[in-house]
Simulated assay, not measured.
Amino acid sequence: MKIIVTGSLGNISEPLTKELIRKGHAVTVISSSFERKTAIEALGAKAAIGTMEDIDFLAETFRGADVVYAMEALNAGSFFNHDLDFIEANTKIGSNYKSAIEKSGVKNIIHLSSIGAHMKEGNGILTFHYNVEQLLNELPEDVSIKFMRPVGFYYNMFAFIPTIKSQNAIFQNYGGNNKEPWVSPLDIAAVIAEEIEKPFNGREVRYIASEEISPDDIAATLGKAIGKPDLKWIAVTDEEMLNGMIGAGMNPKTAKGFVEMNAARGNGLLYEDYRQHKPVLGNVKLKDFAEQFAAAYHQ
């Protein structure tokens, strides 16, 4: 099949591209960076260099594809851009995808959404995933869409490193012994590759998770991996979390979105729909990621 992969060679798109090529598919990878062209071609894929803001470029790239894998992607530095509305910017990318899909005539879409996309409000920065799912659901009925809803990514734990080093603790505005799901990008890529080869039929939702583990157990696992067996996960108030993020330079509106998202994790609202549609857990467990975390910590 002819498959379009967005997200350049990111944490999900690179392993996805490798797997699709291994299976014999013709893959085109969209990237905004010309410097990535050589690396994309080295994998055996075709590079399409352009931006998610260019609807004509997207439509031309999508045209004739059997499947398009679409994801919204803003770099982590965007969290600290005080001139950027994070939710609005990501929603606009989703709107661009909708327009490009309509113009190109492509009929099979896999969209990287997220846990929390079932919530219109109360999900913080994840609101844009709800927005984009609603936009794509406005497409004609003959466009089949699979909404992939992964849970929190293991690699988001890299953000814990500064306070572990400075205060020997992880600080979040939730915590304790209640298990919550986490996921590896490798498991996400594996599920997407599987879904690409399965029949498309209307609108479908699939959650993706690797392991369910509590904040306290996360601290214990990461602490053991980095040689700090006394590492603690400490729950702070929403206000303390918000002030800490703003003090670190984060856009205040984005910081508020993070705090609201974490609060929904703590009270369980974020996981209500997930609990009703629990997936088979993937292969990559926290202890596997902990090795990668330890390497980053000791750099």
Rank of each mutant, 00 (worst) to 15 (best):
N168F: 04
H25M: 09
E212I: 05
K198Q: 11
M52H: 15
I145S: 01
Q276C: 03
T61Q: 01
A39R: 15
L16Q: 01
V191N: 02
K285S: 09
K165G: 04
Y154P: 02
G7S: 09
I115Y: 05
H277D: 10
G152N: 14
V205W: 02
M52L: 15
T91N: 09
M148E: 07
M1Q: 09
F147P: 00
S33Y: 15
P185Y: 06
F171E: 05
G10P: 02
S144G: 10
V68Q: 10
G77T: 09
T254W: 05
W233V: 01
A39S: 14
P279K: 06
A70E: 12
I161E: 00
G10M: 07
P162C: 06
T6E: 07
K224G: 07
R22G: 14
G223R: 00
S114C: 11
D217E: 15
K92N: 12
A89N: 04
P279C: 11
F171W: 06
D273E: 12
Q172E: 12
S184Q: 07
T127Y: 06
G223V: 01
F289C: 00
L136D: 00
K224V: 07
S166L: 12
A47S: 14
W182N: 03
A47N: 05
M71P: 03
N243H: 12
T28L: 12
F80M: 11
A225Y: 00
P150G: 09
Q167N: 10
Y207M: 07
A296E: 13
A255I: 03
V280C: 02
E14I: 04
I196K: 00
G257S: 06
I3S: 01
G77L: 06
I125V: 14
E60P: 13
I101E: 00
G247S: 12
N123F: 11
I213T: 11
M148P: 07
E291C: 03
T38P: 04
S214C: 07
D238W: 03
L136Y: 02
M52E: 14
E72K: 06
W182L: 09
Y154M: 08
K107F: 04
Y155G: 08
R22Y: 04
F128G: 05
N283W: 07
N137D: 13
T61M: 05
K46H: 15
P140T: 11
N201L: 03
G176D: 06
G227P: 00
Y297S: 04
E35A: 15
M71E: 10
K198W: 05
E102A: 14
E19Q: 12
L269K: 13
F62C: 04
T127Q: 06
M245A: 11
N173R: 02
G152D: 13
K278Y: 03
M245W: 13
A290N: 04
G24C: 05
M250P: 02
A76H: 12
T28E: 11
I188S: 01
G176M: 06
V29G: 01
I188H: 02
A26L: 15
N108W: 14
M1H: 08
P199E: 05
L126W: 03
V205H: 10
K228R: 11
E212R: 13
A295G: 08
D273L: 03
L16P: 00
G7V: 02
G10H: 02
A189H: 03
L231M: 04
D187F: 02
V68R: 07
N173M: 09
M157W: 04
L222N: 00
E195K: 14
T51I: 07
E141W: 05
G124M: 02
I110W: 03
E204K: 15
